[in-house]
């Protein structure tokens, strides 16, 4: 069974259609990426999942059935911004929120200590949340999401305000959780993090899921008929190449529809060109994102 299963959900607020038709599922032991431009309906979809809002249509299944009070302790949720009591000392705030997730006070305190050490917040635990830097607050929010060891984690923009070192730390933690069987639904704008962490994604635009599936399949689906080439010396003229464009340190060759990359490679070899790089030009997630969203707009 999937950890999350959401089918054709829709939600309107008065005349505003926040979510029109979204379907996807998230497996256990998977980091699933939810992408979309601002205002696409990602956050509303998350709130529908968490039963904060009731959908107008469609069905939501979470941890093998409809959302209920008992399941709240099995889910960790981190909203995009803040979400902690700004005037409370860090330790007290996280302990309290941990007890709301079903932990006893002692249990919450015992679990908190190693997390604070790992996230380098131990020396700040008596400080008020508002006295911490944005990055520290973000780490504190992540601890709050993980403290009760949930089976499903829903996390909105986990890398906001984190430096590269802490970004790596959070990625490591997420991978560890995935390996332990936790389902992670991550909503983000940071495409390179998604490419690095996620196996599958859903792209939401204007309240609809416009792209959904394994990341590799999607990239292959959006592969232009092109190769990336870097040669030692001058690149000779090659038959069947429609366009030559510089691409970082290489050139991108857009091929005619009846020409395969193998033919181009053979041609280059035949012309005794010393190849430093030759690869199928797979689009980045950024490129796919922009293309899909622009297609949607047009």
């Amino acid at each position: 069974m999937h950890a999350v299963e959401i089918n054709n959900v829709a939600k309107s607020f008065g005349p505003v259609k926040a979510v029109v038709d979204v379907s996807f599922d998230v497996n256990r032991g998977e980091i699933f990426g939810m992408l979309g431009p601002n205002g696409a309906g990602k956050t509303t979809t998350i709130r529908l999942l968490l039963d904060i809002f009731k959908p107008d249509h469609g069905s939501v299944s979470i941890l093998d059935g409809p959302m209920c009070e008992a399941k709240k302790n099995r889910i960790g949720y981190m909203p995009e911004e803040r979400g902690l009591y700004q005037d409370a000392p860090l330790e007290r705030c996280l302990t309290y929120l941990g007890t709301l997730k079903g932990l006893s006070k002692t249990e919450a305190q015992n679990r908190l200590e190693p997390y604070l050490e790992r996230f380098d917040l131990a020396q700040h635990k008596q400080k008020k949340v508002k006295e911490l830097s944005k990055g520290m607050q973000q780490k504190a929010q992540i601890i709050n999401t993980l403290l009760h060891e949930p089976e499903l984690i829903i996390i909105d923009e986990p890398f906001t305000a984190l430096d590269p070192l802490n970004t790596q730390l959070v990625k490591d933690v997420m991978r560890e959780l995935r390996d332990r069987g936790t389902a992670i639904l991550m909503s983000t704008h940071q495409m390179h993090q998604v490419e690095e962490l996620c196996d599958r994604i859903v792209l939401i635009d204007e309240g609809r899921d416009v792209l959904y599936g394994p990341l590799d399949d999607i990239r292959r689906r959006y592969t232009g008929h092109a190769v990336l080439v870097r040669v030692d010396g001058e690149l000779p003229e090659i038959e069947g190449v429609e366009e030559v464009a510089p691409h970082n340190n290489s050139v991108r060759l857009t091929l005619a529809s009846d020409v395969s990359p193998q033919q181009v490679l053979q041609d280059l070899m035949a012309k005794n060109v010393t190849l430093e790089k030759f690869e199928i030009a797979l689009p980045t997630l950024d490129e796919i994102f922009i293309r899909v969203v622009e297609e949607g707009e047009s």
Partner: peptide, 13 residues
């Protein structure tokens, strides 16, 4: 305003 409610409401009824 500070979004704490979003965390609380996913923990309690």
């Amino acid at each position: 305003e500070n979004r704490t409610i979003e965390v609380i409401v996913t923990s309690v009824s």
